[in-house]
Design a protein around this nucleic acid. Structure first.
Lengths: 168, 168
DNA sequence: GCGCTAAAGATAGTATGCTAAGTAATTCGC
DNA sequence: GCGAATTACTTAGCATACTATCTTTAGCGC
């Protein structure tokens, strides 16, 4: 890599806004997922947004909707919409228990389970693309540092929320 | 491993999906910006989304809408909406030139410029929060690694787009 | 000049994610 | 046990960002 070759369209100075680069990374990743779905003509099966929920379900289904929200780190109304779409697409089913009728448990259907095999290579491809030229150690460092930033912000937000509640 | 313990809440395992953690970091950052705006009762002045565009304009205005899009790394229809909002809020003005009547140049108004002073401390606070407990070196590493991932994905997407065009 | 292509923005329609508020079921305080 | 709080999910409405497509203006080849 020749550092003198600054032939890219985005000069370094555009990256000095941290929120900008983090948001951009998130968006460009999302677009990469979308593009691979298009290429594999899987757009009618699942959307890039739903894919995220599936990835968590493949790691263990039969969880409540709330638990699923926590695993994808999203608010519950967002999960409601995603889950509706996944159910409509026939990839999951929702089951109530007599035990606690407020809860809804999410289960993968056969089709939802099969989709993992189709999508696994794409998943690997994205990861390979994003981390191209990085050592395993660098990838690990990136994940660790991001996680620390997340934990910092989550804690700060939680504190602020607590203060707001107290004053209300 | 005790299978019963696997359903224990281990937040660490939720972070193993890279897209998930990156997206979460982006969202929680955005929420932090929103929360600070609320706290400073500046919600009526500007939204967290518009703030991003302003940050780039503070670093140099009098640029075209397209150039602004590039600086915030967003597509143009997104910029159109943001710019409309900022104009309505009286923070920027749009000017056409006789030179090339397709172009629209964006300029900060007096109010738009003043807002920088009000928002600078919030900006600093977010950065301080997010990077709490990190050394300068770690912060630099995080930025570098994210930028490399962005460049990787941008290049890959550009290539795919070129191929799609060629086959069309 | 005339026709074709490209550039700069705008519009339409959609997906994603949020907050605030609402409903139904469960649990807690006493 | 009974009313109040909590929990789990839903609904409504909004902000943000995207792709695809359109309009207007400029540049190019001849």
């Amino acid at each position: 890599m020749d550092p003198a070759k600054q032939h890219h369209r985005h000069p370094a100075e555009y990256y000095t806004d941290p929120e900008n680069s983090i948001g951009y990374l998130a968006r460009i990743l999302f677009r990469s997922f979308s593009r691979l779905l298009e290429q594999g003509t899987l757009t009618h099966e699942v959307s890039a947004g739903q894919w995220r929920f599936l990835r968590q379900l493949w790691r263990g289904d039969g969880i409540t909707q709330r638990e699923l929200s926590a695993r994808v780190s999203m608010r519950e109304p967002t999960t409601v919409v995603a889950v509706k779409g996944l159910e409509k697409a026939g990839l999951i089913t929702r089951k109530k228990t007599r035990d606690d009728r407020r809860k809804t448990f999410i289960y993968l259907t056969e089709r939802g389970r099969e989709l993992e095999l189709k999508l696994a290579p794409f998943n690997a491809e994205i990861h390979e693309l994003a981390t191209r030229g990085m050592t395993d150690e660098e990838v690990e460092t990136l994940q660790q540092l991001m996680r620390r930033a997340i934990d910092n912000l989550a804690e700060a937000n939680a504190q602020l929320a607590a203060e707001t509640d107290a004053s209300a």
